[in-house]
Amino acid sequence: MKKMEEKSMDSHLLRPYNFLPKKELRSFLGQNFIIDPMFLRSTVRLARLQSEDMVLEFGTGLGALTYYLAPVVRGVFTVEISARLLKFAQNFLKSYSNVYFCLADALRNKNSLNPAWIDAFGEVHSLSKPFVVVANLPYQIASSLIVLLLRRHFEEAPFALKRMLVLVQREVGERFLAKPNQKNYGRLSVMVQSMAVVRRVKLAPPNIFWPRPRVMSALMEVIPRKGVEGGGLSYLDKLVRLAFTHRRKKLGFNLAPLASSIRIQSLWEEVGIDPSQRPEEISVQKYLRLALLWKKLEDG
């Protein structure tokens, strides 16, 4: 049965060669389509889904991952920016009554989610009830989208994000996991680790995709932390944007612009930060502590 299923899926997954020009396929915002049924089944298994789960997917593409998700969950709400791809996926998945399609960009801009898909998702599934994100994310939006989904969960209730299992570039996954003094440690590391527990589930080689990317990918599990103070995240974001503006400069130099609004020097000792340190030497916990103290000062 599995061999017959794989043969059927291979036939479908190779169809982009026929229905879209190569140049057009390569223009879909960094999307690389998974053409390996074994990897797709493995992804669904590793997502640890239950029959009552609602899945939120970004980057419907040809509907291949959706095809494996739909039979094992209550529903899949899938977001795609390309009308042509979405039409193809709708036709391929027409036998599934629990798949909900949304033609929209995931992001309104690099700093905010697109409210169009949020509103549409809320009509299908109450945002106060848990949902799981499972997606092969377009490379160009992956890091911004993950941070914004986490921030939405903590800053704008209801948005009951349970966890994410997402395929991203290997380098992006390494930045999620990086620790102080490591090469990839930076703003993304601090923001993601302050809000979530992250682990790399498995690597994905280029040959499972079409077109083949030039880099390895990584399947990452992202689980929101408990007890995160949502009100401090905007301060943390501003703080680390400034802190990592010049990686080789001292932290005191990079955060000098804050001196006009707060007496930041008074916070160094309380947090245990030496302003002569470089930004990559400071832990996530200390950045978060500094951001919360900044918020406290401004709140009076």
Rank of each mutant, 00 (worst) to 15 (best):
K249Q: 13
F244N: 05
A160S: 15
L165F: 13
G232T: 07
V99I: 15
L219Q: 01
N114R: 05
V172E: 07
N136Q: 10
M195T: 02
A196V: 03
E280K: 01
V172Q: 08
P115L: 10
Q182K: 09
D105P: 00
L255S: 01
Y96P: 07
L288A: 10
L242W: 03
K94H: 11
A135L: 04
S128Y: 11
V168M: 05
V132M: 10
L203G: 11
R152M: 15
E52T: 14
R241I: 04
K249E: 07
Y67N: 11
K2D: 14
L62T: 11
C102Y: 08
L149S: 02
R151Y: 07
G186I: 04
V240R: 05
D119I: 09
S260D: 10
I81C: 08
T60H: 03
L188N: 04
E155P: 04
I273H: 00
H153W: 06
W117H: 15
S42R: 14
L127T: 13
G63S: 08
R225Y: 00
L56N: 01
N254A: 09
F77S: 08
F19H: 14
E5S: 04
V99Q: 04
V44W: 01
D274T: 03
G122V: 05
P180V: 03
S276C: 00
S234G: 13
R41H: 07
S194F: 08
R214K: 15
P224K: 09
A135M: 05
N91M: 12
V198L: 11
E269Y: 08
V132N: 03
Y139T: 08
K7S: 15
D237Q: 15
G75N: 07
K286R: 15
F131P: 04
M164W: 08
A196R: 00
E269I: 06
E123R: 13
R41N: 01
G30E: 13
F253Q: 12
R74P: 02
F33D: 01
R108T: 04
A64K: 00
M191Y: 00
S126G: 13
L236P: 02
A70V: 06
M54Q: 03
L288M: 09
A89H: 13
E229C: 03
R225I: 05
V168K: 02
E24S: 12
R163L: 08
L188Q: 06
R45K: 13
R48I: 00
V198H: 02
I262L: 09
L161R: 11
L113N: 08
C102A: 13
A83R: 15
V79I: 12
G230V: 10
F101Y: 15
A256E: 13
L14F: 14
L113S: 06
H12R: 10
P115F: 13
L255Y: 02
N136A: 14
F19M: 02
A47V: 12
G231L: 04
G61Y: 04
R45Y: 11
W117Q: 08
P257K: 07
E171S: 10
K202I: 07
I118Y: 06
L145S: 05
W117M: 10
Y139Q: 14
F19G: 00
